[in-house]
Amino acid sequence: MPTATYAGRDVVVTEDGFFADPEQWTEEMAPELARAEGIDALTEDHWRVVKFMRREYEEKGAGPTVRVLGKTSGVPIKQLYLLFPKGPAKVAAKIAGIPKPHGCI
């Protein structure tokens, strides 16, 4: 699998750029990951979603889909798409260093 360098550390990523091993992720890597997704600066609201994704993954073994994110993160769907125009669950998962959420809704 390919590797990438974030915050000066080499990490293993999947073909589409998600962390293969979420344990390799640190918060210091998030701004760099965000920039690669076209988000120049992570605001408090971005962090709220990223940390929520991380927590969900740690508790449940998978990141939430957009619908679940909208219902449970406290950030409404409209705002989620303003924060992450390229797909809230997908992009936030990438920034949070967890696998891409798997679900159709």
């Binding site: 997908k90 159709c104 809704i105």
Partner: peptide, 11 residues
């Protein structure tokens, strides 16, 4: 509806 929503979820 699922296809439209799924498209947006993929950006």
């Amino acid at each position: 509806l699922i296809m439209a929503n799924g498209a947006r979820a993929e950006g």
